[in-house]
């Protein structure tokens, strides 16, 4: 009888140890699964970020083309239909960028300069203007989603 009891106690002990071991392994396995799922999520995020980087990178190059078309437009004295056609190309580019979520930054002449979205490239003393007021937009700025691809370049009053 006593022997049986002892055996039972030992068996219970073993069972308990095995259960503990099982729980430990289960927890380890679950953590491993979770780690993997988290890793997959992080990787997906990283991939998205990478795609965004890529978009911003080539947008940068494309924006230079748009700048130059913009400059050309300002120089146009008389709009022949050929020139009209060329300027429409700019429209095409801008729409294309919009489709990729790249939009022009709204900068207004007369408002105060804000380095969050604008970059000062020239200053000028001007009577009647407030210090730090935007006098002119030198080059349009763009953002992709909420990130500044390129700040608006502006001329700022310095009095």
């Amino acid at each position: 009888m006593e022997k049986q009891n002892k055996e039972k106690i030992q068996k219970d002990k073993d069972l308990k140890a095995l259960k503990q071991e099982k729980d430990k392994y289960l927890a380890g396995w679950q953590r491993c699964q979770a780690d993997f799922l988290n890793y997959k999520k992080a990787e997906a995020e990283r991939l998205n970020a990478l795609v965004d980087y890529e978009i911003e990178d080539w947008a940068h190059e494309l924006l230079i083309v748009i700048d130059q078309l913009d400059r050309a437009r300002q120089e146009v004295k008389e709009k022949t239909s050929v020139i009209q056609g060329f300027l429409q190309i700019e429209e095409y580019f801008i729409n294309f960028l919009k489709s990729k979520d790249i939009k022009e930054i709204k900068t207004e002449v007369g408002k105060l300069f804000n380095p969050e979205i604008e970059e000062a490239v020239e200053t000028e003393e001007k009577k009647g203007a407030k210090d730090g007021e935007i006098l002119a937009i030198v080059q349009k700025g763009y953002k992709h989603k909420n990130k500044i691809v390129r700040p608006t370049r502006v001329k700022v009053a310095k009095n």
Partner: peptide
């Protein structure tokens, strides 16, 4: 800047010439 706002990094660079 004049309003005692502090800028660090690229923001500071953007306002540098003013």
């Amino acid at each position: 800047n004049r309003n005692n706002e502090r800028f660090v990094g690229v923001l500071a660079k953007r306002q540098q010439i003013t």
